[in-house]
């Protein structure tokens, strides 16, 4: 483990910044960190054998981890399908069906993103052999998950905090796309509009709203809806929204720490 990774682990292990909901530790708000990243990070920080029970939106999965490895799924709530071939089975390179099946189960669990909590307990099963399972990094590579995503910039945090008020968003840094989110079809329209017109319209944005400002254009995207632009120095968030949400969106910008 290099020094930077070690420093990140120590920071994560410290109690500073942790939050709790009804006594349960909150490991993701549904967006930050991304849920699968949060699950694998918990695995990566688990040295002694533990059963990690993740709960979100009424669903629950319990995984056994130890030695910074994920050993297997031991419990899942009834709303999660396809657990038969995975539950109680050891995760290993020799069992690709279990690895893929577990990914599918976690995808079901994370489909409705929300606040996720975790409870850590002594495991009833799979608590033995210390080299059993796969490392969080190995699973992250296999599932194409970034275990150390870049921290959110203020503009990314604003786009995230807009929640249901926006249907898609793009954050630009120095006029290049930096992070996106939301509905795929609306995001595609937003990207096309940016590609076609941002280079010229950004000058108007600077003239109209200055260095730190906010612009809403109702119904500018036709059937895809309306577009808003929040500007803060070299960053800009371009948001797709429904016109009836304009006043609320303006209120959200007014409260944002940009």
């Amino acid at each position: 483990m290099d020094k930077q990774t070690l420093a990140q682990k120590l920071a994560a292990l410290s109690s500073a910044g942790e939050s709790f909901e009804n006594g349960l530790r909150v490991v993701s708000n549904g967006v930050e960190p991304p849920i699968l990243t949060a699950i694998l990070t918990e695995v990566d920080m688990t040295v002694l054998p533990r059963k990690l029970s993740f709960r979100m939106n009424g669903s629950e999965i319990s995984l056994v981890a130890g030695g910074r490895r994920l050993r297997g799924l031991v419990q899942a709530s009834k709303d999660i399908k396809g657990v038969m071939g995975v539950i109680g089975k050891s995760v290993s390179h020799d069992a690709p069906d279990v690895v893929d099946g577990l990914h599918s189960i976690i995808a079901q669990f994370t489909a409705t993103a929300g606040q996720m909590t975790v409870v850590s307990e002594d495991p009833d099963v799979m608590g033995g052999q210390s080299d059993a399972g796969l490392t969080a990094q190995s699973l992250a590579d296999h599932w194409k998950v970034d275990l150390n995503p870049e921290p959110l910039t203020p503009m990314m945090a604003f786009a995230r905090d807009c929640g249901d008020l926006v249907t898609a968003w793009v954050v630009l840094k120095d006029k290049s796309e930096n992070r996106t989110g939301g509905d795929g079809a609306k995001l595609a329209v937003l990207r096309d509009t940016i590609a076609e017109k941002w280079s010229t319209f950004s000058d108007s944005v600077d003239q109209l709203a200055g260095d730190v400002g906010f612009i809403c254009l109702n119904d500018a995207l036709g059937e895809a809806g309306s577009v808003a632009i929040a500007k803060n120095g070299s960053e800009a968030a371009i948001l797709c929204y429904a016109s009836e949400n304009m006043a609320q969106l303006h209120g959200a910008w007014g409260k944002a720490a940009l």
């Binding site: 509009t193 017109k197 941002w198 010229t200 319209f201 108007s204 109209l208 709203a209 200055g210 730190v212 400002g213 906010f214 612009i215 809403c216 254009l217 109702n218 119904d219 500018a220 995207l221 036709g222 309306s226 577009v227 016109s243 304009m246 303006h250 910008w253 007014g254």
Partner: peptide
């Protein structure tokens, strides 16, 4: 229209 293909009927421009 200057940005997007739709004709906007409302524009809001906010500074602090």
């Amino acid at each position: 229209p200057n940005f997007g293909d739709g004709q906007s009927d409302t524009a809001l421009i906010a500074t602090r």
